[in-house]
Design a protein around this nucleic acid. Structure first.
Length: 848
DNA sequence: ATGAACTTCTTTTTT
DNA sequence: AGAAGTTCAT
């Protein structure tokens, strides 16, 4: 590895400090006082507590510009870490714009993971890896663990490999190598957790592979055990910036502390109220503890919000106030007017989807009652929004038309009003708690022809055909990738079943070689007869041929010790085919393309389409290796957007985004807050759910509509539920309760006796009564008929001994005793419990 | 070895 | 309701 001096020799690189100094410092004038403090306080530890919509990214990018402008650091000496690729991209473009040139000179602006890959490639040998290690995806990880579990003779029914994966992930998040797992965790995974973890790590090394957690873990290990390496980077990264600090886990925290340990020029930006990744190992404690970790830290709060109307802010603030452990911030805004947060209840999930669909139509056509007088709050729109707006020519044109219409035309007042109130589809988003909620909306929007897109949905690179194709590429690039081999030996079908694959495995193991080499031996010795043998020979020969095509003559490059260039030190001459051609050749010659061409299922054409898209994407990369690495790190795909669409996404995926109009459906106890969260993490879990609610509300600029349904299909069975407890936490003065359609006895929704049963149940719930009380207060009419007859269908259900039943909290079980309305159940997972009958449903019995 | 019929279990959230 | 995994007949 390069020495320090060599790095220093790189002084004149990229943007020179002098060029920067010549630029104006105009960006400072655009900041408010708090932002400006955060930007100008360059040295020593800084904690920037930035509430939602307070111009955090603006401050962060201005800070980078200022570091460069004042000559504190060169672009490649600033380490700037984000969590998501999206955030990294945005930072890059905005820094670029600020500097008036592309931010290519900022090689260390990226996600934790992408930066760690770069570092680890340079120091792989220190943790017994080769620098061309591959990165495992979760699919492969699971397959590998399954093998280990089976080899250890563990019943993977009782102890699923998934669970082991979770345990190991958790340890890695806490920066624990197998030898450091505390005794308290020894019982994990049936006492075998630690042992299997160690085996897993060994296996990964054998395969020259790392999983996601390893990227951080290995670097922490290296920094902890190789002082010289650490010091080198401590000196190189003169300034460190961290975005979304509240989401860091222990490993990331250690990594940062090690790197910042010498100069402590670290600026962490975050919002404890937006910490929503605790389940993934994020430690809110990191941000709460910052001042202790870095004594003398300069703490600055950004509290002026540029995004939302006062009503929306008030609603969000009131909800988050319910949390105990916060650093405490109060958002405020200059803006005035705007709409109250809307609240509406529905009969069931489908009706909720239908209603939202109609409201979106109304918003788009300018006739929505949700958004009268939109113009009043336009001035509030934040920077991000105006950027988005200016990006879209279509929108710009529309703005022009709008002004023309308002100013010069003789349109009647009401028509002008309509134009004023119009929203674009891409200004509207639906944020759900759990992704299964999306289906109702997709179904509905498809039938009414409303254009929508699912953000962060099933990802391009996670599709079966893409992963298959990638496995071929991987195998061609690195023939020792056994996992890739396993994936594609019999895809497309080659007549190589379990038995044939076992033969290959055994041969490989006996000879101590990779599966590809094992298979080659199998072919040479003719261990597999007939069709399968011939097909295997063809595959092996193909792999060798394609592998040869990846490179021309090999060229040794002298160690280029340039620290800010992540490229591997070995290069090859120009191959005969471009990697794009090669990819096509691989897919065609392996028979994979044909496989889908012959497939009669309706999704086959789409899959072929995706494969084509995959090959097209290769154009953006120099070679297959580069592409593969990109994919393993950047699993998201920016789909080409043809025309404006409504966005549907999870609340988690919505963090960092904003929309003029937001719909928040499914606010029902058990769904949101999620039952599982509360069961697993108690108060902590509930508080995280509440932060999620806060994140959701604060995404809205002008219109925020919260809704809940009395009935919802869960696992194919109807369940009724109470409005979310968070609804109680909304401040009445800032909420308008809309009258649910179908409440007046009539309507499409009441369907006979079943309706009555469920209505009785829900309308007697405390949540519903609260809602009704509120409606009265707002002068809205009561339902014509108040039904007090309690006919609770589920309570009437009788159970028999031995019957299979389901409980929402405890899962499946068998009935072992009955006492009145209490039933004793031996649950598969939760043990024996006595529960009230109405919380149980017969396994094959629909409650209504 | 393969596909069709049958089962079991799922639902958080993701770099 | 649907995916994913299992079993069974070809």
């Amino acid at each position: 590895m390069s020495s320090f001096d060599e790095m220093d020799a790189f002084e004149g690189a990229s943007l020179s400090a002098r060029a920067m100094a010549a630029r104006s410092m105009q960006y400072l004038d655009e900041l408010n006082p708090a932002q400006r403090e955060a930007v100008e306080h360059l040295d020593g530890p800084v904690l920037m507590l930035a509430g939602a919509g307070t111009g955090k990214t603006k401050a962060l990018t201005a800070r980078i510009a200022h570091l460069l402008n004042t000559g504190r650091a060169r672009p490649n000496e600033i380490l700037s870490v984000t969590f998501t690729n999206k955030a990294a991209r945005e930072m890059k473009t905005r820094v670029g714009r600020l500097l008036g040139q592309p931010a290519e000179g900022m090689p260390w602006l990226g996600t934790f993971h992408s930066i760690c890959v770069k570092l680890l490639r340079r120091h792989a040998e220190l943790v017994n890896l080769k620098s061309n290690f591959t990165i495992l995806d979760s699919d492969d990880q699971l397959r590998l663990l399954k093998q280990l579990v089976q080899a250890a003779n563990i019943d993977d029914k009782r102890w699923p490999a998934r669970m082991l994966a979770g345990v190991i992930d958790d340890w890695k998040n806490r920066a624990l190598t197998p030898d450091k797992v505390p005794a308290a965790d020894a019982g994990a995974y049936n006492n075998k957790g630690v042992e299997l973890y160690a085996q897993y790590q060994t296996r990964l090394r054998e395969l020259n592979t790392v999983d996601f957690g390893d990227l951080l873990l290995h670097m922490v290990t290296i920094f902890q055990t190789h002082q010289d390496v650490l010091e080198q980077y401590q000196r190189w990264f003169r300034y460190i910036l961290v975005d979304e600090y509240q989401d860091t886990n222990v490993a990331q925290y250690l990594w940062l502390r090690l790197l910042a340990g010498a100069h402590k020029n670290v600026c962490c930006v975050g919002d404890d109220d937006q910490s929503i990744y605790g389940w993934r190992g994020a430690e809110v404690g990191n941000i709460l503890r910052f001042e202790k970790d870095f004594p003398g830290a300069f703490v600055v709060r950004l509290e002026q919000n540029y995004r939302s109307t006062p009503h929306i802010l008030a609603a969000a603030s009131n909800v988050i106030r319910g949390n105990e452990n916060r650093l405490g911030k109060e958002l405020w805004t200059d803006a005035e007017g705007g709409h109250k947060v809307k609240l509406i209840g529905h009969w069931d999930g489908e009706e909720e989807a239908r209603w939202i669909g109609e409201e979106i139509d109304a918003l788009v056509s300018g006739t929505s009652r949700l958004a009268h007088g939109r113009k009043n709050v336009r001035s509030v729109s934040s920077e991000q929004e105006s950027e988005r707006r200016s990006k879209s020519e279509y929108n710009a044109l529309k703005q022009l038309n709008l002004q023309e219409n308002l100013g010069t035309s003789n349109l009647p007042e009401d028509q002008k009003e309509e134009i004023r109130n119009k929203f674009e589809l891409d200004e509207i988003a639906i944020l759900v708690r759990a992704s299964h909620q999306m289906r109702a909306f997709e179904d509905r929007f498809l039938t009414i022809g409303l254009p929508y897109k699912v953000i962060g949905g099933p990802r391009f690179y996670e599709r079966m055909e893409i992963r298959d194709a990638m496995a071929y590429f991987r195998l061609v690039v690195s023939p020792e990738d056994d996992l890739a081999f396993e994936r594609i030996v019999n895809t497309p079908k080659r007549g190589l079943g379990d038995k044939a694959q076992q033969t290959i495995q055994m041969t490989a193991r006996e000879n101590g070689v990779s599966l590809v080499d094992g298979a080659r031996i199998v072919v040479e010795q003719g261990l597999i007869k007939g069709k399968g043998g011939a097909a295997l020979r063809q595959l092996i020969e193909g792999l060798a041929r394609w592998n040869a095509m990846t490179r021309g003559p090999r060229i040794e490059v002298e160690d280029d010790s340039v620290i800010d260039d992540g490229a591997a030190p070995m290069r090859f001459g120009a191959p005969e085919h471009t990697h794009i051609e090669l990819a096509q050749i691989i897919l065609d010659e392996s028979g994979y393309t044909t496989h889908w061409q012959n497939d009669k299922t309706p999704e086959a054409p789409g899959r072929l389409e995706n494969l084509k898209e995959l090959v097209n994407q290769l154009d953006n990369f120099e070679n297959l290796q580069g592409f593969l690495e990109h994919v393993s790190l950047v699993m998201d795909n920016e789909k080409e957007s043809d025309g404006a669409k409504v966005s549907i996404m999870t609340l988690h995926a919505a963090k960092g985004l904003e929309f003029p109009a937001i719909f928040l459906p499914g606010w029902e106890d058990g769904l949101f807050p999620s039952q599982r969260s509360m069961d697993e993490s108690g108060i902590k879990g509930l508080e995280e759910e509440r932060r999620l609610a806060y994140v959701g509300i604060t995404r809205a600029e002008e219109v925020c509509t919260i809704s809940f349904a009395a009935n919802r299909r869960v696992f194919g069975q109807w369940q009724n539920s109470m409005p979310s407890r968070f609804i109680d936490e909304l401040p009445e003065d800032h909420v308008e309760v809309l009258t649910p359609p179908g409440l007046y006895g009539g309507g499409q929704t009441s369907a006979g006796i079943e309706t009555r049963a469920a209505e009785a149940n829900v309308y007697n719930s405390p949540g519903w009564r609260r809602l009704q009380a509120r409606q009265g207060q707002y002068g809205m009419s009561q339902p014509k008929e108040t039904r007090n007859t309690v006919i609770d269908a589920t309570a009437l259900a009788s159970f028999t001994l031995g019957e299979r039943v389901f409980h929402q909290k405890f899962g499946y079980g068998g009935v072992i005793g009955i006492e009145g309305d209490k039933v004793e159940v031996d649950f598969d997972k939760a043990g024996t419990k006595k529960v009230v009958a109405r919380f149980l449903s017969a396994k094959d019995d629909v409650p209504f």
